[in-house]
Amino acid sequence: MSNVNEINATDFKTQVIEHNGLVLVDFFAQWCGPCKMIAPIIDEIATEFSTLKVVKVDADKAQALMLQFGIRGIPTLLLFNEGKVVATKVGALSLTQLREFINANS
């Protein structure tokens, strides 16, 4: 079972901004091939990093958030720490690349 929850723009503040600690946010779309490719990797990371909260946001349903964070392509991964963006990655990553991204920015 996945530890990744899909949230909407309404939940974003309480689930991400107000969270004390690290949060990885995956902006994705149902029609996006690379998003589907990294979905299992995102699930793996969620189980591997016990102190990391992982959530997904459907980009098609969260245009205001896309604008707020300057997201122009998906998949886009934003890493938040104490409610602030500390790192961004655009595009599909391997499991190793995603581990390195999180470790380098946490």
Rank of each mutant, 00 (worst) to 15 (best):
A59K: 10
A46G: 12
S106A: 13
E18V: 09
I41V: 15
L67E: 15
G73I: 04
N5T: 12
M1S: 15
E44R: 08
P40K: 04
N103G: 05
A59R: 03
E82I: 06
S106W: 00
K89Q: 15
Q97M: 13
R72W: 06
G83E: 08
G21S: 07
I38F: 05
E48D: 12
A9F: 06
Q68T: 14
V23G: 02
K13V: 14
F80E: 03
E100M: 05
E82L: 10
R72G: 14
T14I: 12
L24C: 06
C32L: 09
N103D: 08
A59W: 04
N105E: 08
L67Q: 12
G91R: 06
E6N: 13
K13N: 14
F49V: 09
G73N: 15
L22H: 01
V57K: 01
S50L: 13
T10V: 15
V23P: 00
F12R: 08
V23M: 07
A29W: 08
I42T: 04
N3G: 07
L79D: 00
A64I: 11
T51L: 08
V23A: 07
T76F: 00
L93S: 12
I41F: 11
P75R: 03
M1T: 12
V55E: 04
I45N: 01
K56Y: 01
M66G: 15
P40W: 07
R72N: 13
G33K: 14
T51K: 10
T14W: 07
Q97F: 01
G83L: 07
K84A: 14
S94P: 04
D43P: 03
I38Q: 10
C35L: 02
L67T: 15
D26L: 03
L22N: 05
A39M: 11
M66T: 12
M37P: 06
E6R: 11
V86S: 11
L77A: 02
V4T: 09
K53G: 06
V90T: 15
Q15S: 14
K56P: 03
T10G: 07
L77D: 01
R72K: 14
A9Q: 15
L65H: 04
L98S: 00
L78A: 02
A46Y: 07
P34V: 11
G70H: 11
I71P: 03
K13F: 12
T47F: 12
D26Y: 01
V54E: 02
F49M: 05
T10M: 13
R99F: 01
T47V: 11
V85S: 00
S94C: 08
N105W: 04
L24D: 01
L65N: 07
K36Y: 01
I38E: 04
L67V: 14
T76Y: 04
F101K: 03
E18W: 08
N81F: 03
A46E: 08
F49S: 00
D11H: 10
D11A: 15
K89F: 00
I17D: 12
G21K: 10
V4R: 02
K53T: 10
W31T: 13
